[in-house]
Amino acid sequence: MNRFHVHLNVADLETSIRFYTALFGAEPTVRKDDYAKWMVDDPRVNFAISSTGRVPGVDHLGIQADSGEALASLGRRLDAAGGALVPEEATVCCYARSDKLWTEDPQGTRWETFHTFGEATTYYEGEAPCATDGANCSPDLRAAKPKVDKGAVCCAPGSGCC
């Protein structure tokens, strides 16, 4: 089963951790100097916060896929929705290793779909396969090279569509 994902930028990480720990009734499952994440089952959500210098507020929304196949299926759904897809393969972000697909909705809200397959020791590592905004490991969707062939099934690991 997939999991809804919300990532907020916060001005004060410790105060925000206290608030969301009380709200969710649980300690973060991941806690770093600049990041915290709760994997909540009721409601089923991957809720993350970070203090990486970006403007406080909603950074992006998303869906965490349980497998590479589920990610490919989400990619086909995003493709059908008509947004430009920006894939990232085997990227390190938010202390995790993941394959990702990024898009924006008609209002400009950034959406991340991803399948995580391992942990990482850093928030962000190296150059992502697609352009990033410099302040976070999410790509600058306006500068990144989207998938061009709308008829091809894209964004499965190894597809090379970036």
Results as ranks from 00 to 15, higher is better:
69 E>N: 14
9 N>E: 04
11 A>I: 00
111 W>V: 15
156 A>Q: 05
30 V>I: 14
132 T>R: 03
10 V>H: 00
11 A>W: 08
159 S>E: 06
49 I>C: 02
74 L>G: 05
112 E>C: 09
149 D>I: 02
19 F>Q: 13
140 D>Y: 02
141 L>E: 06
16 S>A: 14
81 A>G: 05
68 G>C: 13
72 A>Y: 01
66 D>Y: 12
62 G>P: 05
146 P>H: 02
162 C>K: 00
17 I>P: 08
55 V>I: 08
31 R>I: 01
112 E>D: 13
90 A>Q: 01
104 E>L: 08
29 T>Q: 13
96 A>G: 12
127 E>T: 12
21 T>Y: 09
61 L>E: 04
132 T>E: 09
161 C>H: 02
98 S>T: 11
109 T>R: 11
113 T>C: 15
48 A>L: 08
115 H>C: 08
19 F>G: 11
83 G>P: 04
144 A>I: 05
157 P>K: 04
11 A>L: 09
124 Y>W: 14
129 P>I: 08
82 G>A: 06
40 V>P: 06
59 D>R: 02
36 A>W: 02
110 R>F: 00
41 D>I: 13
110 R>H: 07
46 N>V: 14
159 S>N: 05
47 F>S: 10
87 P>Y: 02
50 S>R: 03
110 R>D: 05
124 Y>K: 13
48 A>F: 05
150 K>V: 09
129 P>A: 09
152 A>Q: 06
12 D>V: 09
60 H>Y: 11
37 K>I: 01
29 T>Y: 03
74 L>C: 11
45 V>H: 13
71 L>V: 12
33 D>I: 04
132 T>D: 04
77 R>I: 10
21 T>S: 14
29 T>W: 04
141 L>Y: 03
46 N>K: 12
134 G>V: 09
84 A>G: 08
12 D>M: 06
117 F>E: 09
85 L>T: 02
131 A>R: 07
67 S>I: 15
127 E>Q: 12
2 N>Q: 13
7 H>L: 12
5 H>R: 14
32 K>N: 03
68 G>K: 10
32 K>W: 06
162 C>G: 03
15 T>P: 04
66 D>P: 08
148 V>G: 07
79 D>F: 09
42 D>K: 15
162 C>W: 05
83 G>K: 06
143 A>D: 12
46 N>Q: 14
70 A>Q: 15
141 L>N: 01
121 T>N: 14
41 D>H: 13
156 A>H: 01
109 T>K: 03
38 W>V: 10
157 P>A: 06
143 A>F: 10
129 P>N: 08
81 A>T: 02
82 G>P: 07
98 S>G: 01
2 N>L: 12
87 P>D: 00
137 C>K: 03
17 I>D: 05
125 E>Q: 15
77 R>V: 09
93 C>V: 12
95 Y>P: 06
142 R>I: 10
151 G>V: 03
23 L>F: 15
